[in-house]
């Protein structure tokens, strides 16, 4: 069972990452990873990547799926509730309170550039996770399978515009076959 301090840390981690997460759920991924893996050590880097992978195979917003599954590891179902409230409620309250104000100022350059200015930083952070991702997969699956999966997913996602869940489904089949072959 988690201690009160751990619940507070959990709340703080998801509160800060989501209140700074300009650009929607995916923009919070690198911020959440930093808190979860490096600051608090609730998950290893590999666990986090695996959680992201599994999360991407399921429907629903990624930010709350991350919060929920980290919350479960830290403090079971109560942890899930704490992390979800921290991730969702503050930005929602802001939205309900500020809606009319923002409607008036939606064309103000100050408001508009908020999300624009954060973009390069988010890109760097996402790019760093991507590199970790590929390095892990490289040491895990070896060069050949990693290259096949990268090239294949690029082809389907970018060139054929195949639905992401379908691409993940194909990767699951591919990985399952590779795993089954290794049995013999």
């Amino acid at each position: 069972m988690a201690t009160l301090i751990e619940y507070l840390e959990l709340f703080w981690a998801f509160f800060t990452t989501n209140i700074l997460g300009y650009g929607g759920g995916p923009a919070t991924i690198p911020l959440v990873q930093h808190e979860v893996v490096e600051v608090y050590g609730w998950m290893t880097e590999y666990q986090f990547i695996e959680m992201l992978a599994a999360g991407n195979a399921l429907p629903g917003p990624i930010a709350t799926k991350m919060a929920g599954s980290v919350g479960f590891i830290v403090g079971n179902w109560l942890g899930v509730a704490v992390a979800l409230v921290a991730a969702v409620v503050p930005s929602l309250i802001l939205k309900i309170l500020l809606m009319n104000f923002l409607l008036k100022h939606k064309d103000s350059p100050r408001v508009k550039r908020l999300s624009t200015y954060v973009k390069p930083t988010i890109a760097v952070l996402l790019g760093m996770i991507m590199i970790q991702n590929v390095t892990i997969s490289f040491s895990n699956l070896g060069l050949i399978h990693t290259v096949i999966l990268l090239a294949g997913s690029f082809y389907f996602l970018e060139k054929r515009k195949t639905h992401p869940s379908l691409v993940i489904g194909m990767a699951l089949v591919y990985g399952g076959i590779v795993g089954a072959v290794s049995l013999f």
Binding site: P26, A54, N56, N133, V167, A171, G175, I177
Partner: peptide, 24 residues
């Protein structure tokens, strides 16, 4: 088989992030 399946999604998610990074 399970290890193969979870392992295989990792580079796919990596590619999704690469595309997302590019798009941002």
């Amino acid at each position: 088989i399970v290890a193969g399946m979870t392992g295989a999604i990792v580079p796919v998610v990596g590619m999704m992030m690469a595309l997302m990074t590019w798009q941002i």
